[in-house]
């Protein structure tokens, strides 16, 4: 007996044991249901400032196609987005803008820091570059690379989905690193 037919038989047996007015249903918490919906309909705001922005374009394009993960509908208004994708170097001149945009995003909101510059300043350790955007806004997922490979950016979206689904059960202080 294959696995599938085994499962069908199990269900049949279970249904047979149920009350006569049995209806198929699923029990869950409302929060889990909401998180399940959220994770498959992320609306990113692409804060693409530099080279990583070009690779983020690749992710949106047909070969890597982020729409397979339900996060392709980029919005250029922070009011319509819930995922801030910071792709590129942030200078001190840009920092207040980034902070303001993050404040304008709708709750619940998440931040992906794409690439070495956004995550740590990269190899620009000098007078004008912010050494990682986590100095100014909270970050959910860091993506390594200069610039990261598009598959790496896709993986960050999947990891973020896991984090969203886990919700409050996500271990505090646990870092999501790629």
């Amino acid at each position: 007996m294959t696995k599938l037919s085994q499962a069908k038989a199990d269900v049949k047996e279970f249904v047979g044991k149920g009350p006569s007015h049995w209806q198929p249903f699923v029990t869950t918490k409302l929060r889990y249901l909401a998180d399940w919906g959220r994770k498959y309909s992320l609306w990113p705001y692409p804060f693409g400032t530099a080279c990583c922005g070009i690779e983020y374009m690749s992710v949106l394009m047909s070969r890597y196609d982020i729409s397979r993960y339900g996060a392709e509908l980029v919005r250029f208004s922070p009011r319509q987005a819930d995922l801030l994708v910071v792709a590129g170097t942030i200078s001190y001149k840009m920092a207040p803008v980034l902070k303001q945009i993050h404040g304008q995003l709708c709750d619940p909101k998440w931040v992906i820091s794409v690439g070495a510059c956004a995550s740590s300043g990269g190899f620009y350790n000098n007078y004008c570059t912010v050494q990682g955007i986590d100095e100014i806004i909270p970050v959910d997922v860091y993506v390594a690379g200069c610039p990261p490979h598009p598959e790496n950016i896709l993986r960050s979206v999947i990891r973020l989905q896991e984090k969203i689904q886990a919700g409050a059960d996500f271990p505090r202080g646990m870092k999501v690193e790629l």
Partner: peptide, 11 residues
């Protein structure tokens, strides 16, 4: 301009 000034010349 200058929002992406990241110091190529100093680096």
């Amino acid at each position: 301009i200058g929002y992406l000034h990241r110091g190529f010349e100093i680096m």
